[in-house]
Design a protein around this nucleic acid. Structure first.
Lengths: 234, 234
DNA sequence: GCAAAAGTGTTTATGCTACACCCATGT
DNA sequence: ACATGGGTGTAGCATAAACACTTTTGC
């Protein structure tokens, strides 16, 4: 069978927007680009798609290459393909966004890539259209987290309700009433109370909770309503 | 500046999932593929990205090529890139979904492409992973239409509330209480009542409404709640 | 005058929000 | 004993759901 002759070929890349949460702030993981063009500038972690590799497969590989982690929450964000977006050669980049438990990674920040966590509200200018990608990823995170319990992916296996609340408040740049918040998240049936308390962040200590994996998967697609007034339509 | 040598290049294509509504049924527009491989089989409308063309730009071109229409509602759905998805050459396809007013098009069905509208619940086997794409598009349509007023894009400029309800019922394969439905859609403030009635579908006649463009754009991102019980979380 | 679809109101239940005090502990 | 953050209950309000009858008109 003949090929699709006369069609122009191009490169395909993956870029990953990697979010983390350190208990206080939402962060994004950036690297210092190690090759030309724009060597030494801040960039998202990325790479070209290999010959026999699917898109998500590539994203998993690239994520693992940087962090060493597996089983990370990953979601396709958008395909960016403006002709001039990479000045060297026409390249389509499929952006993925990833949520990781920062504690599984923060100590072993990759030397090879000069990776660093940045506060999401003040991070450097990035190469190409990467700032655009981050902007879109932030929006999608906010959009999706309002209805589906994805933010748990940013927390360690055991976490407290105040920690969870801080995370939501950080994502939405606002603050919630803690009584309503705790009632809401407990009413989802997604949390299992532990016997131990976290005594690091307070004197009294806050109970740890774990995710109920069964319910988490079952309810993932149903609609939560964590954010007050988000369903108001005026 | 040197090129990114040693990276493998590939083809990039666009495929369009085109929805329409004839007043009774949700439909999808398919074409008979005009070239090898799989010539003569049913397929989504698509094409390769041109050398200096962006992705959305390509989608607009392809859509216009088939329908002659402009200003169609268009949204990027997903990038499909499994290595074997096109048996001839490695091709990444960025799928877009489009909503069109079927009346603007149904009479002039493209001869060149042998285009036909199919009922969404019974349409033929498609080439490559196109059935997959359609499945995903249906899901996204349902997901998004539950919260944002996109279904208006499927209707003519003037439409009646019973027509709108039929459309929603078709999308969700269910039926709603007409009193609650009408109260809900009117409360969005998106509709402007016309003086004329549609006397075709009933003896009494139903009032026509038009979209309030200003409110439509302003409220597009806010959350509607048209579908009963969709916010229940068990 | 009858069949067919359009249009309209009320009651009830549920869920959301706002709000304030006591508890446990480390210092 | 006091300062700090954790944990809990209630009452009022707003929204959504369930439900049935009257109206208009073409035949």
């Amino acid at each position: 069978m003949t090929k699709y002759s006369s069609q122009s070929k191009l490169l395909a890349a993956i870029d990953c927007i990697i979010f983390g949460f350190d208990g206080q702030e939402l962060k994004i993981l950036l690297i210092k680009r190690g090759f030309e063009p724009k060597r030494g500038q801040w960039s998202l972690m990325g790479g070209f798609i290999k010959k026999n590799e699917g898109l998500e497969e590539g994203a998993v590989r690239i994520l693992n290459q940087l962090t060493g982690l597996e089983g990370i929450y990953l979601e396709q964000l958008y395909a960016f393909g403006e002709p001039g977006r990479d000045p060297i050669e026409r390249t389509i980049s499929v952006a993925y966004f990833a949520l990781i438990d920062i504690h599984q990674y923060e100590n072993q920040l990759s030397r090879e890539y000069h990776a660093e966590w940045f506060n999401l509200t003040k991070f450097p200018r990035l190469i190409f259209d990467h700032n655009n990608m981050v902007e879109m990823a932030k929006e999608k995170l906010r959009y999706k987290a309002g209805m589906h319990p994805i933010l748990f992916e940013l927390l360690p296996p055991k976490f407290t309700i105040p920690q969870l609340q801080t995370l939501y408040e950080e994502v939405y740049s606002t603050s919630f009433d803690k009584r309503n918040f705790s009632r809401k998240v407990l009413s989802t049936g997604l949390l299992i109370k532990q016997k131990e308390k976290d005594k690091i962040n307070s004197k009294k200590g806050a109970y740890y909770y774990k995710l109920d994996k069964r319910n988490y998967e079952r309810k993932f697609q149903s609609f939560l309503n964590i954010i007050p007034n988000s369903h108001k339509h005026w």
